[in-house]
């Protein structure tokens, strides 16, 4: 089958559709994901982003289940359904809504296997969106995967391209552990080459998005695009940057990151979450611990500032990491 250009969102749709066709235990739960406000199933709008548009027609409303705005109730129901044989894919519209259902993720989904001595399993996927830049203000723009990364028992994916999205989401659905899928809403309409057929990308495997020899940039989700842009600009300074995309935040592919850092001797980590206890600082600590002797410059992080996300478009633009901030941070590594 052919590879063609599709969007990140279409990659999500293809992953969901192919797994639902292949496995009748895969079901979708979420707010407005099927008919939402409409009474005509065929006209279903498929949620505010339209990701599941058309699904109810193909799979029926038993499998594509509109839920009330009751996140703790339906995320918890997904955990229960997963322990007794289904593979629910739950949509938490924005990761900011974590606060409404954290107990079900932290104390139920993540704990059951361990505290029941390995006898319970929770094969579910929680799809959610991250990211600032759409002028959605403080409660709909956060990037919270670092909070989830603190919870053993969960696996976390943060795909940055349509290709990674499809392969990682299929792996997540087939995985027997709870996986949280962080989809960046600003790259939903970004296009990229994706094979038509089903394929998987193993969880816990990083990808080198741009090989280079002078400095390593570890970048997560949308920050990969910004880092590639910065890397292009760095060539005019005769700096050849390597961009490493962890893709899976837990389990983390430490080996690929460390190998790159040992080769280049310099590293900048770019992460849209706020800095305290962030993925960036976590990766920085791992590098300090395991590759200290190879470093020629201090480990640097580019995070969002430790503030809520502001609404004002001009303030929000200041808030976000961008290619220029990454460029300048990398350049600071070369000053002696």
């Amino acid at each position: 089958m052919a590879t063609r250009e599709i969007t990140y969102q279409q990659a999500i749709q293809e992953a969901l559709r192919s797994e639902m066709r292949a496995d009748p235990t895969v079901i979708l739960l979420g707010e407005d994901i099927a008919g939402g406000a409409t009474t005509v199933d065929e006209d279903a709008w498929g949620g505010p982003l339209g990701t599941t548009r058309g699904f109810i027609k193909e799979f029926g409303k038993e499998r594509v289940r509109d839920c009330p705005i009751s996140e703790a109730g339906f995320v918890g129901a997904a955990v229960g359904a997963a322990t007794t044989g289904l593979r629910p894919v739950v949509e938490l519209m924005y990761n900011d809504f974590l606060g409404t259902c954290l107990d079900q993720i932290l104390n139920q989904a993540a704990k059951l296997r361990y505290m029941f001595g390995g006898k319970a399993k929770v094969p579910m996927v929680l799809r959610t969106t991250i990211g600032a830049g759409l002028r959605k203000a403080s409660q709909h723009s956060q990037t919270l995967y670092s909070i989830f990364a603190h919870i053993p028992g969960l696996k976390l994916i943060a795909p940055s391209t349509p290709y990674d999205m499809k392969g990682l989401l299929i792996s997540a659905i087939r995985d027997d552990d709870p996986v949280v899928d962080f989809e960046h809403k600003l790259i939903y309409w970004k296009k990229g080459p994706v094979p038509e057929e089903s394929y998987t990308i193993p969880l816990g495997k990083a990808d080198i998005k741009r090989p280079g020899k002078d400095v390593t940039i570890v970048a997560i989700s949308r920050m990969v695009d910004f880092s590639l842009e910065a890397a292009n600009k760095l060539t005019s300074e005769r700096i050849d940057a390597e961009v490493v995309d962890p893709r899976t935040l837990w389990p983390l592919d430490e080996a690929t990151i460390l190998e790159s850092v040992k080769k280049t001797g310099k590293v900048v980590i770019v992460d849209e979450s706020t800095p305290n206890c962030s993925m960036a600082r976590n990766i920085a600590a791992i590098i300090a611990d395991k590759a200290f002797d190879y470093l020629d410059a201090p480990v640097k992080c580019v995070n969002a500032p430790p503030t809520p996300v502001p609404f004002s478009p001009s303030l929000e633009d200041f808030y976000l990491p961008n290619p220029d901030k990454i460029f300048k941070t990398v350049m600071s590594q070369f000053k002696d």
């Binding site: 918890g76 229960g80 007794t84 629910p88 006898k119 319970a120």
Partner: peptide, 30 residues
């Protein structure tokens, strides 16, 4: 927790397991 007897466990967050029961009911119907 006793999987063989469909005993889905003791849960220690007050109320935390009630949604799970709901999901098990959903799976039964499904």
């Amino acid at each position: 927790f006793d999987a063989e007897r469909n005993f889905l466990g003791g849960h220690a967050i007050v109320g935390g397991h009630i949604p799970l029961a709901t999901g098990v009911g959903f799976a039964i119907n499904y």
